[in-house]
Design a protein around this nucleic acid. Structure first.
Lengths: 119, 119, 119, 119
DNA sequence: GTGGTCTAGACCACC
DNA sequence: GTGGTCTAGACCACA
């Protein structure tokens, strides 16, 4: 997996996992791949994956059963959605609007690009 | 000046300066406040301001005359705009679209919020 | 390490590193000693080494892997050589020729001194 | 006049004056243009020219008569030549030889470029 | 362990 | 006055 440079890798992995959950590819109670497995697959240090898991566990999105691994928590999808939406509305959107104004980007143009993106 | 915690202060100062330029408050050839002056005004260490200036000079947005200070470079406004736009289109926008989809946010609703923001 | 006084230390360290690369003592992909390590070895402040690294990274001669250190970039040897040669031909050589003429130094004499220098 | 950025302007002006002397355009006893005159001509701050004069006077290359200006000192040409030659042999030449070796520049090629330069 | 950022304070050369 | 370099020491995030 390719990582952007402006955000911690462990957070990008967290997003990766959350997206799996949002897209319902991993459902409540499902076992998440092991630290080692993910580390190999994503080509990162196992410590980094471990850190992601701790981060998500602390947010009640996943939980651990000793000796068995990590699992998707109850209501994980909603939690993820709520976290992301709050973050989005409070942090991303104002910055986004500011950029649109300063860069003089037309809102209608955006719509076009969005259709393109979806397609 | 208040700084967010998730981004280096020297970069936030760089944005501050770029916005002055974008808003045409500082025009081509204008002298930028001195390192010490800005440091006092923004309540940061002079080294931090110095770092901002080095960063912006390296991007050809400002330049230095020895012993005289820093000045806004030719065509700085366009350079700033281009850098920001490129960054926005390549990095921010895809993330933004992805969020809209995953969070199931209505595009029309956004428009409303934008009008609100502008008002 | 001893430093001359008429040039910034961080630039002298940059030259030191570039020479290691030119002399093929450090090859592409090799890890460069850490900031702290070099700082101790060269008896300078870690910040000064850091500055050297930023300078060389900006010139694409070295690159960083987060949390792992700095490494010699692809094609670093050629880049170093090109930078130095350009600089030499554009700046040093004209000054050199001017001096030879003004000081009335015989070109053949130079050759002798060069043989001596090499020996 | 255009100045390089890697050397203090007042020293570049000193070289400019020394070259006039070496080229016998300004002879012993000749009056040197006034601080203001040179400052205007070279497009620099008068303080900077003043500093050059102090520097050259301290090296006995020029001298001042109160209220009359600066003049070329006795034997100035030889002094300049000696200073420059010493500097050249001790400082420039070793660096020059080192560069030639590292950059793998052929000595014969140099000769060609020199002929070109002279022509 | 690694890099990266920041502060505090000093000193220098230059204009 | 201006920028520029350096030291000392701290603290943080990341692997």
């Amino acid at each position: 997996m390719e990582f952007r440079d402006n955000k911690a890798i462990y957070l990008q992995i967290a997003e990766f996992i959350c997206e799996r959950i949002l897209l319902k590819q991993w459902a409540v109670g499902d076992k998440i791949p092991s630290v080692r497995e993910l580390a190999v697959q994503l080509e990162v240090n196992p410590n980094t994956v471990m850190r992601t898991f701790e981060f998500l566990q602390q947010k009640d999105i996943i939980f651990t059963k000793r000796g068995m691994g990590y699992f998707v928590a109850d209501d994980a999808e909603n939690k993820v959605k709520t976290f992301r939406k709050d973050d989005f509305l409070q942090n991303d959107l104002p910055v986004f609007f500011k950029n649109i104004q300063l860069l003089e980007i037309d809102f209608e143009e955006l719509k076009g690009r969005f259709e393109e993106y979806k397609g």
